[in-house]
């Protein structure tokens, strides 16, 4: 009954590449105690800018989450919240 056509999961190599990058990132962070990762307190000038905060426009994040939740199968990742809508 299922459609006979099988489509290659072409995203798999990309997923593996991202998983590898993520692993490298985690290892980098774990090793940060003995490396140059991070900044001194007096080097936070750029990091203190509002544009460098993870979320600068919460309303846009809110409507984007809602739109993509209603159009795609995937959700989550950036935060654990979500849902609240019967649109998917």
């Amino acid at each position: 009954m299922k459609n006979e056509t099988h489509y290659p999961r072409s995203t798999t190599p990309v997923l593996r590449a991202i998983a590898l990058v993520s692993l490298v990132f985690v290892i980098s962070v774990v090793l940060s105690g003995c490396s140059s990762i991070g900044v001194q307190p007096w080097e936070r000038d750029i990091m203190a800018k509002r544009d460098m905060q993870p979320i600068t426009h919460p309303m846009i994040v809110s409507v984007d989450d809602h739109i993509y939740f209603s159009k795609e199968a995937s959700t989550g990742g950036k935060s654990a919240s979500g849902g609240g809508c019967g649109c998917n």
Binding site: S22, F25, V29, I37, G38, D45, G77, A80
Partner: peptide, 14 residues
């Protein structure tokens, strides 16, 4: 993680 003065990185598992 603040990687350096110009780079902030975030990794989540959900």
């Amino acid at each position: 993680q603040i990687m350096n003065r110009r780079w902030l990185a975030q990794l989540n598992y959900n």
